[in-house]
Amino acid sequence: MKKILIVGAISAIAEATARVWAQQGDYLFLVARDAQKLAVLAEDLRVRGAGRVETYVMDANDYAAHAPMLDAAEQALQGLDTVLIAHGVLPDQAACEQSVELTLRQIDTNALSVVGLLTLLANRFEQRKAGVIAVISSVAGDRGRASNYVYGSAKALVSEFASGLRQRLAASGVTVVTIKPGFVDTPMTASFKKGPLWAKPEKIAAIIAKACDSGGGAVYAPWFWFYIMAIIKLIPEFVFGKIKI
């Protein structure tokens, strides 16, 4: 039985992952902005077998709220051994290009709030010399592309920050997992045409749960995105400037 904190718990991927953990009887502390949606998810996870479910309302962009939330989670579950940071938004790229304010707000939500949480968590787990920190980044962070570089650059920051943190905490026995999903069929991507590369949130959830158990690293979800992104990263700049992907 694990004691797990999930930030951004009502995102589709987080919800599917919480269900995997609930079936195992784990204790869950769910954080999101919407109290009603949290209550609906909490009921669902209790029915599915979660040993305990607590909910907490917080906006991740409110940095001052991070530390009290972590205190509340540790108190409610009497400890914490796994954390999944899953919140994020998919910005409207075209609108961002016309607005400094909107662009910075998206970077704030997708990157800076994650960095804030990771910094606090790293110190708490480092002291205890145990724990798993999993953070959902994206394949979009592997190379900035014209179609979504605001989202991509925020995720790049998350991936690189987590990479450094992983190296720092390796000595303390703390595991840091970076999940890089490709296309996932969620409400966030409802308006996209779906093709064979698309995965269901349940598929990503199974990969996340397994990665948390088996010890860290950067995990592409599903695996084939490693090869797709390897090729995209290899395209020379003089070609990249002329193509649309």
């Binding site: 609906v40 009921e43 669902d44 029915v47 409400p187």
Partner: peptide, 9 residues
């Protein structure tokens, strides 16, 4: 399909 939560059992 998004309304996919259990309520009680």
């Amino acid at each position: 399909r998004t309304l996919n939560h259990f309520i009680h059992f």
